[in-house]
Design a protein around this nucleic acid. Structure first.
Length: 601
RNA sequence: GGGGGCGUGGUGAAGUCAGGAGUUCACGCCGGCCUGUCAAGCCGGAGGUCGCGGGUUCAAAUCCCGUCGUCCCCGCCA
């Protein structure tokens, strides 16, 4: 059976007089008694079809979201009855034949977008949710974005290569998602956190340019921009240095933005070093759609008598200030900021308000000299009404606290503006709160200077870089280590002893010993990029079937218990308390409405 | 692991602070009318264990305790 020869959204005045066969959904029905208007929607759009119930009696039984096929003649709408909101609004299709391909039950929520429907309900009925313009547009945009990525990279000579998704667990960084092996009883695969080591092996193998739309898995807690499983554009190139990577990624991003937004981006993108980003914006992913820079006041307070400041400076710390502009804040509101700063790890926070006469109101004003107060307002360009926040602490703490206030009080414009930015020169390692060194990017990142890394690892700079868009980290990459000796050195600094390094990464380090080309690469979070381009507040909106914050899929009910024989085959025995909890029905997930969602007669 | 917001017919909301009969509004749903509507309109109707459990009270959607779900955030995310 032929269902259609014309798409609803494509019907135009030029088609008047043609007989068309269309198929789609009855988005809206306006039954006038003697004539029935139906908005027929398919993936291409909407067209109004007109039905005379005496000619087509089935029309009387139509409800919303029936899947139907109609045959009819395209006609110009009577003068005055055009709908100029619709691309098809000057025509309509006069139906001669209507087939209900599939009726619909009453809907659990309305598909118009007048109100925000609870997300849990949307996810439980995601197949209906994606009939709505919002998710439908996001799914399309994502496809357009991925197509632009593939096209750009194929044209530049890259090979698209799949790497395994059942791989060796090399725990470090994120928690692995584990999969038990039946054939190797008691052993486990891990799902990849990224294809990192496989793409490096591809470089060893002589694949000089690789990319993949790669599914990745990290078993950490969810956020608006983080899911258990996600997709990255993963890219790697041999005989590449940092500049080759940045240029290639820029060309991909420019193509994506052109195709998704219809906007040409200027490249190359601006760059900041990690150090600059931290000092001026208090974060390694600054949103540069607005200014509000953090200023260093350490020199100004070098000889201050105010102990909170002098103490911090004497301890090797800094004094930094942020002008958050005019604010309507009460004394208690300002004091609440002090608590927020403490919660974020600072010893304290000093606030100042510039008075109309240029004087400064602050709980600590009496401890500061006139020159110091003057210096603050001058350095921060604070004018009457402006509120100033000052933190004296270790450099990292001051940056982080003020960086958060900057984001909180800064006012970025709408999502129309796209501010891409490279942050380069990340450190090789960062120190944990317990003083251990961990890889800032990952342990396969090349240092700028291997000797220097050996001497003072804590301050060594790497050849790692991040791509930032509107204050969000879109992705990161690095020049990789391509010799076994440097790789072993990094493992050593990370406190991984040679035996452990051999057990976990021996297979990889061995590969580096066979003429590995210098190589470098990058990975971009696709949902993050598309969600920002689409102006969405979270990545679930651009994921067709996302999970909730507790890792549950409300539609299918996964994860779910499995049969005992399945566990037995895998040699798995649930803890008695886990088994009891399951039997008691705890954590069964999902409280969305069950059964007939409509009630009614 | 921690902090915060939310949970009221199918959907969205008001009611909760300050206890007094499941009250209200919009949409949807069901039935009827209607030949130019397009968020159609008009008339009529059905539909709720106020997430769940316990407590206080003469009386709980409302106050208290616990719990579940969901969202945002901190930790975590090499």
């Amino acid at each position: 059976m032929k269902y259609r020869d014309t798409h609803a959204g494509d019907v135009r005045a030029a088609d008047v007089g043609r007989t068309v066969l269309m198929a789609g959904w009855t988005a809206r029905i306006r039954d006038q008694g003697g004539v029935v208007f139906v908005d027929l929607r398919d993936a291409s759009g909407v067209v109004q079809v007109v039905i005379d119930p005496e000619v087509v009696p089935e029309a009387v039984a139509l409800k919303r979201e029936f899947c139907v096929s109609v045959r009819g003649e395209v006609a110009r709408r009577p003068a005055g009855s055009e709908n100029f909101e619709l691309p098809t609004g000057d025509v309509e299709v006069v139906v001669s034949e209507l087939t209900v391909l599939s009726p619909s039950r009453a809907l659990p929520f309305q598909l118009d977008e007048r109100t925000d429907v609870d997300e849990l309900v949307r996810l439980k009925y995601r197949y209906l949710d994606m009939r709505r313009p919002r998710v439908a547009a996001n799914i399309r945009a994502r496809s357009v974005a991925v197509a632009a990525m593939r096209r750009t990279l194929h044209e530049a000579g890259f090979l698209e290569i799949e790497t395994p998704t059942l791989i060796k667990s090399t725990p470090e960084g994120a928690r692995d998602v584990l999969v038990p092996s039946r054939l190797q009883l008691g052993d486990f695969y891990a799902l990849p956190q990224s294809p990192q080591l496989f793409k490096q092996l591809l470089m060893v193998g002589g694949v000089e340019r690789y990319f993949q739309i790669a599914r990745c898995y990290r078993d950490e807690d969810f956020r608006a921009d983080r899911q258990l499983e996600f997709t990255q554009l993963d890219v790697e190139g041999s005989f590449w240095d940092q500049e080759d990577v940045l240029a290639t990624i820029e060309s991909v991003v420019v193509a994506v933005v052109q195709d998704v937004r219809g906007v040409g981006l200027a490249a190359p993108f601006p760059r900041l070093t990690y150090r600059e980003a931290m000092d001026r914006y208090g974060t390694d992913k600054p949103d540069l759609r607005f200014g509000m820079e953090i200023a260093d006041l350490t020199a100004l307070f070098a000889d201050t008598g105010f102990k909170a400041f002098s103490g911090a400076i004497a301890g090797g710390g800094v004094v930094r200030g942020l002008n958050i502009g005019r604010q309507d804040m009460s004394r208690s509101g300002l004091d609440a900021l002090v608590d927020d700063a403490k919660a974020a790890g600072a010893g304290g926070l000093v606030w100042m308000v510039v008075e109309d006469d240029g004087g400064v109101r602050s709980p600590v004003a009496k401890f500061l000299s006139a020159e110091e107060l003057e210096g603050v307002t001058t350095t921060l360009s604070a004018s009457p009404g402006d509120h100033v926040l000052i933190v004296a602490d270790r450099s990292r703490v001051a940056a982080e606290v003020l960086g958060r206030f900057r984001v909180r009080f800064g006012s970025p414009p709408g999502h129309d503006e796209l501010n891409f930015l490279w942050v380069v020169d990340f450190p090789v390692f960062e120190e944990t709160t317990t003083g251990e060194l961990v890889a800032a990017h990952h342990p396969f990142t090349a240092p700028v200077d291997v000797e220097e890394m050996g001497i003072s690892p804590a301050t060594a700079i790497s050849r790692a870089y991040d791509l930032v868009l509107n204050g969000a980290e879109l992705g990161s990459g690095s020049v990789r280590i391509h010799d076994a000796a440097t790789q072993r050195k990094v493992f050593e600094i990370l406190g991984i002893n040679p035996e452990e390094a051999e057990r976990r990464f021996g297979w990889f380090v061995e590969a580096l010993g066979y003429g590995t080309p210098p190589h470098a690469g990058f990975a971009i979070g696709i949902a993050r990029l598309v969600s920002i381009l689409q102006g969405e507040p979270n990545i679930r909106e651009v994921i067709p079937f996302p999970k909730t914050q507790t890792g549950v899929d409300p539609l299918t009910g996964s994860p779910s218990p499995v049969e005992d024989h399945q566990l037995a085959e895998l040699g798995i025995d649930l803890l008695p308390e886990v088994r009891a909890a399951r039997l008691a029905g705890e954590h069964t997930g999902g409280s969305a409405p069950e059964g007939d969602p409509q009630g009614g007669a």
